[in-house]
Design a protein around this nucleic acid. Sequence first.
DNA 1: AATGAACCCAACCGCTTCTCC
DNA 2: TGGAGAAGCGGTTGGGTTCAT
Length: 233
Amino acid sequence: MGRAPCCDKANVKRGPWSPEEDTALRSYIHDHGFGGNWIALPQKAGLKRCGKSCRLRWLNYLRPDIKHGSFTKEEDDMIFSLYNKIGSRWSVIASKLPGRTDNDVKNHWNTKLKKRGMEGKGSLSESYYRTSTPLLPSQPLIPSPYVSSSTSCVLTPATVYQEFLSSDESLDASLQQEDHRGGSEYGFLWELDFGSIADLLSSSGSDGTLSSIWTNDSGEGKLGELPQSVSYF
DNA sequence: AATGAACCCAACCGCTTCTCC
DNA sequence: TGGAGAAGCGGTTGGGTTCAT
């Protein structure tokens, strides 16, 4: 017994969208929004399409903020770097690339970047990604350089963030955090306040690496205690 | 010019997650 | 709290286009 289909396939049109259908969908959403219900939209908009198909067409092609055209080197670098960190989380990766959709990024990876990576012709090596700063915010919310309040040591959120990126434990830790919080966003660690991590590193008398504060004496993670209100992306 | 291979990307499929009652 | 339906997501497919021979 399979899942019930989302629509009556015998009565919906499939395949490429015509300009008339695009116009109908675009004008309906412009006038009414999608109303929180994609399933009901086709009928209201006079379209013989499945709601899922309408949603996909709008999100991947018709949205006014979609960026069409080829990917820039900076975008490629970003995709490579994020893929190395989180794998094929296309929606997460796409969210870091304004105007790009998950489908866009996925297609671009499968047709170009993956091949380059397998051939070792990626624009940058993995080691480069671990020492470069492609993911750092252009305008950090925390003043940089960040001066620890407890020591004279100067640690910037950027340097802490680099330590985070180069830590083999980063993904394991994010999963632990995910379990602890019951959240669904694998990448929420990116919203950690790296300035506070820098402060923790300085005040803990650690050796200055992220792994040194990853767990405390009782084996519990300390990172969860830190503020997580700062979004860097 | 013809044709087969390779490439590209829009669209579909079906599973998972979320939301609401 | 559990179930149903909707939305979100990633993998895959199919057809159009471009390239090579």
